[in-house]
């Protein structure tokens, strides 16, 4: 497997801790019906299904966005003068974003506050009765502005092809899933401080990926 794919997966594994903070409560609070013990109909499947569907939706959106970004990147690459410019550009952006994730430089806050329209649509969506609404909610929230995921999408564009772009973000998404599924356990047994540190580590991985892309792009010219 390409090194960048592996890195994307690892980014997800580390970054997932952050995702718990943002997305976990949303799903948990809305799946109250299945989660209240003692209520008729509350069983394991009902408890897990919303989470499962939500994550599948999220992963689907990541894959899609990665594919689109990869496709866009491939268009730019196809212009012969711009070959591999994407990789360099993506690398630089990722280094910057990675730095802000690690807290060394810059601030992601401005980006992450922009999601109100998406959240509003999400609330409307939840008034539907079908259980599939969680899938759709997940695929909607996959678009939420998040420093980590946007970094990976940038990488997808930099990878210059639909397929690799899709694979990058797909693997990233899959990496975050274990944390979100175990969110209940995770939030009670793992301290916030620890989660913060793991998140910063993910930032470092993003920087590493960025450097990799940068080098790959420059090597073409060198």
């Amino acid at each position: 497997m390409e090194p960048s794919f592996l890195l994307a997966l690892t980014t997800g594994l580390f970054g997932g801790t952050h995702c718990i903070g943002m997305c976990g409560p949303i799903v948990a609070s809305y799946s109250l019906e299945g989660a209240i013990p003692g209520r008729p109909g509350a069983n394991l499947l009902k408890k897990i299904l919303p989470h499962l569907l939500y994550n599948l939706g999220r992963v689907a959106t990541y894959a899609f966005t990665g594919a689109v970004m990869g496709l866009a990147g491939s268009f730019i690459n196809s212009i012969s003068l711009m070959q591999n410019v994407m990789a360099i550009l993506a690398g630089v952006i990722m280094i910057i974003m990675g730095l802000s994730i690690t807290g060394l430089f810059g601030n992601m806050g401005w980006l992450e506050q922009r999601g109100s329209l998406i959240r509003k649509t999400g609330r409307e969506l939840l008034l539907q009765r079908s259980v599939w609404k969680y899938f759709i909610l997940g695929s909607l929230f996959g678009f939420l502005p998040c420093g980590l995921s946007y970094s990976v999408f940038t990488a997808a564009a930099g990878s210059g092809s639909l397929v690799s772009g899709m694979m990058l973000s797909l693997l990233f998404g899959l990496g975050t899933v274990p944390w979100l599924l175990l969110f209940g356990i995770a939030s009670s047994h793992i301290s916030t401080a620890f989660r913060g540190r793991v998140y910063k580590a993910a930032g470092f991985i993003v920087i590493v990926m960025g450097v990799l892309f940068l080098l790959k792009g420059i090597r073409h010219y060198a």
Binding site: F64, S130, W132, F135, V163, M166, L170
Partner: peptide
């Protein structure tokens, strides 16, 4: 790669059919 794409297609086609 083909299988990956196909699995994604399955993932995305399912809500269309079932929801």
């Amino acid at each position: 790669t083909r299988q990956a794409l196909q699995f994604i297609s399955l993932l995305v086609a399912s809500p269309v059919l079932f929801y």
